[in-house]
Simulated assay, not measured.
Amino acid sequence: MYDLTGFQRDLLYVVSGLDNPHGLAIKDELEDYYEKEIHHGRLYPNLDTLVEKGLIEKSQRDRRTNEYTTTRRGSREIEARTEWEAEYIDHDS
């Protein structure tokens, strides 16, 4: 996961946290978080990158809509990242 941008990492987390989300559901979640519009030209190429890296899978829901799921590798990467972050976060604050 070290080679992902922050935006790609956020995409992976959102895909993991939603139940087989489609692109617009992912876009809505990220717009809520970033508090600004996420353009399709940014969203879909980054989703494709995560597919190419084997972190998420893309399947066709219908003729116009794709949905995304986290792969086992993607889940392992999230778990490893969470453990790494926990080493540096002071939980007693």
Rank of each mutant, 00 (worst) to 15 (best):
H39D: 10
T49S: 12
D10W: 06
E57P: 00
E83Y: 11
S16D: 14
E57M: 09
Y13G: 00
D48Q: 10
K36H: 15
L47D: 00
E29V: 12
V51R: 09
V14N: 08
R9T: 10
K58A: 07
K27R: 13
E67H: 15
T82I: 10
E29Y: 11
Q8R: 15
G6C: 08
A25C: 02
E35I: 02
L43S: 04
A25V: 03
I26M: 01
L4Y: 15
T5G: 05
Y34I: 04
L4A: 09
A86G: 08
D19R: 10
W84E: 15
Y34M: 04
S75R: 15
L12E: 02
K36D: 10
L18A: 08
G74M: 01
T71Q: 07
S59H: 10
T70G: 09
I56G: 11
Y88L: 07
E29L: 02
E31F: 02
D10F: 04
T70I: 15
F7L: 07
Y2L: 02
G17P: 03
L47W: 00
K58E: 10
D62T: 10
L4H: 13
H39W: 08
E85P: 00
E87C: 06
G17M: 06
D32T: 07
Y44L: 06
P45C: 04
V15S: 08
T69L: 05
H39A: 08
I56V: 15
Y33G: 00
D19A: 04
K27N: 07
P45I: 01
N20H: 13
Y34F: 11
L24V: 11
E29M: 11
Q60Y: 13
G74K: 03
L18P: 04
N46H: 12
V51E: 11
N66P: 02
Y44T: 11
L11Q: 05
G17A: 13
S75A: 12
N46I: 00
E57W: 03
E29D: 09
R9C: 01
V15G: 08
G41H: 09
L43E: 04
R76I: 10
Y88N: 12
W84K: 14
L43C: 05
T69W: 01
R76F: 04
A80T: 12
D48C: 02
G6N: 14
L11Y: 05
V51S: 02
Y44E: 06
L18E: 13
R76E: 11
S93V: 07
E83H: 14
E29Q: 15
S75D: 09
K27L: 00
L18W: 06
E35W: 03
E57K: 14
E29P: 00
W84Q: 13
L12V: 03
V15R: 12
D3C: 03
I89W: 11
E85M: 11
Y33E: 05
Y2W: 03
T5S: 14
G54T: 07
V51G: 03
T49E: 07
R81F: 09
P45V: 02
E85S: 07
E77T: 07
A80W: 06
Q8C: 01
D32N: 12
L12D: 03
G54R: 12
R72D: 15
Y33P: 00
G41E: 06
T5I: 01
R42A: 06
